[in-house]
Design a protein around this nucleic acid. Structure first.
Lengths: 345, 345
DNA sequence: CGATGTATTGCAAGCTTTTTCATTCGTTTT
DNA sequence: AAAACGAATGAAAAAGCTTGCAATACATCG
């Protein structure tokens, strides 16, 4: 590995001069700079990151905190897609991406914060974790630049999939298709769930929809079995809904299974929608009608915000970026009689 | 951040002594060690990774090379699951995991090898890339410890999903269920594909199966449309197969779509199997019969092999670990008449 | 008692980079 | 001609850690 010293020797100048030349300081003459740069290129020089970081405290490395026990994180379609996009964006700015080690089982336990400092992360992106975990809170309260995805902390940057508009658009679409008896199986309590629920009720009210309490059920996100059970409960009702909204696409598949087992067909006998817009939703029959979250922009914005924060440090930045999704019109919503949706006018 | 110097001051010993004590060198008395360790703990000391790496050239960081443009890498269920397991295993040994930046669009392009050196990776795991890419080859030829997943290089460690036994088991299972007219839609040419194909033919021969050339079709991995087309071609034949094997589960869904569109039912009218065993395969109706690859072990073995290689350097290690998968018996294979599968005896 | 051996400990060099400050050398100003 | 200045360069310190080697203290041996 060529070092500054090697270049200095070749160029008959001091190490300091080489360093300054390559960092484009103003106190080195242009000829020298050109000469040194040329030589550096020729010798295939790349700075020693560890020496540099030791001095400058900048690692050009970003930590990513995902939890992935129990089928979350990497194997979670939505977050994997967000991370994918995030990765592309940070790499374009010459940062690298390292997982914030969340292994609890080591002899010398380090908290997230300690680990982040140990690795010298310039910033951390947090998504898909238990946001009440004291270790997460400790990290968030630190002075490390942080951006969260789908969760908002005070005085911190956040990029949110716009759940309010998402549910509004989805419910409005269902309404326009003529449905009036709409059930909502929502996820477990969380920031995301609360936004969606409140948006659901607000939109329902705006549309003049009457939603009985019994139409609102809870099931863990991505819990196929749970969604199946909730679906069965809805189907067993005396006055079942004509359309069911699921917390996510995977759950919707759980619903589909139950419905099919009962010999009912979709959307003729009952309509349904998912949420997320995972790839598969477009490739099954019937194509799932769902709200496709804009993972590309969520990831990219998160990266841009974080890098901006790293390169232009500010304290107490509270900035929420909402990223809208779009209704993907699949084949799981039955269009009801004309006169029904004309009610709208 | 507390440094060795701080501890040395508190303990009234030299920095060298502290360093040696914490690294458990034999030339420090036990009392001193205990005292120093205790103080270090108390002061919340963690070594400065950058200073240490600068000296020792060991970063406790492992690079992971996945390509994820065009829906590969992170959003690729099989590889995401492998990576997930790999991550858990390396973190248990106190290593961190960093993506090997594969962004080509920067001003100063760095090759994979240069980047890996720049980041000081102790080792690199390679999976899901174009193994003919000159940059990948350059990396593989270097002296950096490397383990590949699902690909074998000379004198390099490799962990392989056992495609030979996989196809053998799957085809044998199909045979036992009474099928004799079996088509195979295989993936694009690659190491994996070749193993599977040769295993397919060998097994077919062993079973005394006659497979007409027209039953062998090619379609890109995970190309739902491509699989759909190939399926249509098979269904249009004068003497169509009774069972179709797909290169992966996603492709199988493509096949299912076409079959359903034609009003045929699975498995009554036609049987099929996927490959991979992605989560969803177990949650759709009908449950997909598929070969579930053992991603847990593949990832874990890859991690163990790599760390072993890092900590006990050897040159030219060629070691292939085969990890067997298991047939997941779903509901997409029709059991044929008894007398048919009794042929076997 | 001098010689040899055995634990401990610390000094100092070195890893590579950045950055402050001093130095040098022309040039301009008074 | 002396003073002042600006531009270009390098010496040296600093960041925090590891490690070979020298130094010290003490016990053991002939």
């Amino acid at each position: 590995m060529t070092s500054l010293k090697d270049i200095a020797r070749e160029c008959h100048v001091s190490v300091a001069t080489v360093s300054k030349a390559l960092n484009n300081h103003s106190d080195i003459s242009e000829e020298r700079k050109a000469m040194i740069r040329h030589k550096a290129e020729e010798m295939g020089y790349h700075p020693n990151l560890f020496a540099r970081t030791l001095k400058t405290k900048r690692s050009y490395n970003i930590g990513v905190l995902f939890t992935d026990e129990a089928n979350n994180g990497l194997t979670h379609d939505y977050f994997a897609a967000v991370l994918d996009s995030f990765k592309v964006a940070v790499e374009q700015k010459d940062y690298d991406l390292t997982f914030l080690n969340c292994n609890q089982g080591r002899k010398h336990h380090m908290s997230y914060l300690e680990r982040a400092r140990y690795r010298g992360f310039d910033g951390v992106v947090i998504a898909c974790v238990d946001f009440t975990d004291p270790e997460v809170l400790e990290l968030v309260k630190s002075d490390i630049p942080i951006v969260t995805v789908d969760y908002v902390f005070n005085d911190r940057m956040a990029v949110m999939s716009d759940n309010v508009s998402g549910i509004e658009d989805l419910l409005s679409y269902i309404y326009q298709m003529g449905h009036r008896k709409i059930a909502y199986i929502h996820g477990a309590d969380s920031h995301v769930t609360r936004s969606r629920l409140s948006s659901f009720f607000r939109t329902a009210e705006k549309l003049g929809l009457e939603i009985p309490d019994t139409y609102i059920l809870e099931s863990e996100y991505r819990d196929v079995e749970g969604a199946a059970k909730a679906t069965a409960k809805l189907l067993d009702m005396q006055d079942p809904p004509t359309c069911i909204m699921y917390p996510d696409d995977l759950s919707a598949f759980g619903g589909i299974n139950v419905i099919r087992k009962r010999g009912m067909s979709i959307p003729e006998d009952i309509s349904l929608v998912g949420y997320d817009g995972i790839r598969l939703a477009r490739h099954v029959v019937p194509m799932l009608t769902t709200l496709k979250q804009d993972t590309l922009h969520i990831g990219r914005y998160a990266a841009e915000k974080l890098i901006d924060l790293i390169e232009n440090p500010r304290t107490a930045v509270r900035e929420i970026t909402n990223v809208k999704g779009t209704v993907f019109e699949g084949q799981t919503i039955r269009k009801m009689f004309e006169q029904n949706w004309r009610d709208n006018d």
